[in-house]
Simulated assay, not measured.
Amino acid sequence: MTLRLGDIAPDFTAVTTEGEINFHEYLGENWGILFSHPADYTPVCTTELGTVAKLKSEFDKRNVKVLALSVDGLADHEGWIKDINETQATQVNFPLIADKDRKISQLYDMIHPNASENFTVRSVFVIGDDRKIKLIITYPASTGRNFDELLRVIDSLQLTADYSVATPANWKQGEDVVIAPSIKNEDISSKFPKGHKVIKPYLRSTPQPNI
């Protein structure tokens, strides 16, 4: 199954370190991140889960629920979490799916046979509060993810979902944004009362409208 941006994120029921969950029910009215790990007791994954635990408050501020996945079993997950808490000086505070039968991995196309026939790659899915997939990123197993970048992207996705703007290259929270080409010049002042700048007819900027 090939998933694309704008598709409804497939629902599933899973056994996790925080009990059985239904994915859509777990998300509720929140946004979500679903991200996979090649295996338990691996070094890069250990640092990633520790990093996400430390950033939990940042995801909470954005109404984003986090859910991780590995193809190992629940007993392995529970033992591994003890290692993560010890080595990363944190407490894992979100569910980790035990996908031993690989059903969810296959549902979300997380296993890439030319990379590994048995283990998931580092897939990331950001899902909106409308259950639609907003972002898909795939990393190789050897490269840890930049979760500060994922927070930045979520800021952009949530901003652009509510306002007729886009975010330019390397944009960060609080910086100017780009006005959507669909907005006519005569309508800019009413839609963006903070002011705007015309750089080119197709390139118009305005201060971030939601702060």
Rank of each mutant, 00 (worst) to 15 (best):
T47H: 04
F94V: 01
L157W: 02
R131K: 10
R102T: 15
L69T: 01
S123L: 12
D99I: 04
Y163I: 15
P43Q: 10
N85M: 05
N63R: 14
G50V: 00
V66R: 01
G50L: 01
L55S: 10
K100D: 09
H112I: 13
S116M: 06
N63L: 10
D176Y: 07
Q173R: 12
N170H: 07
L151Y: 03
I133R: 08
R122H: 01
N85A: 07
N185A: 09
A89S: 08
W171N: 04
A161Q: 13
T160A: 10
D148S: 01
V71P: 13
R62E: 02
K82Q: 15
K82D: 15
V153A: 02
S105T: 01
K184R: 05
D109I: 06
L159Y: 06
L150D: 05
I183Q: 13
T138Q: 12
C45H: 08
L157Q: 06
A161G: 12
V177I: 14
R122Y: 06
N85D: 15
T167W: 12
V153W: 05
E186A: 11
N185H: 09
Q106Y: 12
Q173D: 15
I136L: 08
D148I: 07
D148Q: 08
P181F: 03
F119L: 08
Q88I: 01
M110P: 00
T143P: 09
A53V: 02
V71E: 04
N93W: 07
A98T: 00
S182N: 02
E117Q: 03
I104G: 04
E86C: 03
K100N: 07
I179R: 07
V66Y: 00
S142Q: 02
F147S: 06
L135G: 00
V52N: 13
V126M: 13
V66M: 05
Q91R: 05
D76P: 07
A89W: 09
D40G: 15
I81W: 00
I179M: 09
K103C: 00
R62T: 00
A141P: 05
Q88L: 02
T51L: 12
Y108F: 14
I84Y: 06
P181I: 07
A75Y: 04
I97P: 13
D76W: 00
A53W: 04
A68F: 02
P95H: 03
A98Q: 14
V66G: 00
L159A: 09
D60K: 12
S123I: 11
L67Q: 03
L157S: 02
D99N: 02
D101L: 06
S70Y: 03
I84H: 12
I136A: 00
E117M: 05
S57G: 03
I136V: 12
F59I: 02
K100Y: 08
V124Y: 11
I133A: 04
E186S: 14
A141K: 09
L107H: 01
I127L: 13
L74C: 02
A68S: 13
L107W: 01
P95Y: 05
Y163D: 11
K56D: 15
F125H: 10
R152S: 06
A166L: 10
D176S: 13
K100C: 03
E175W: 04
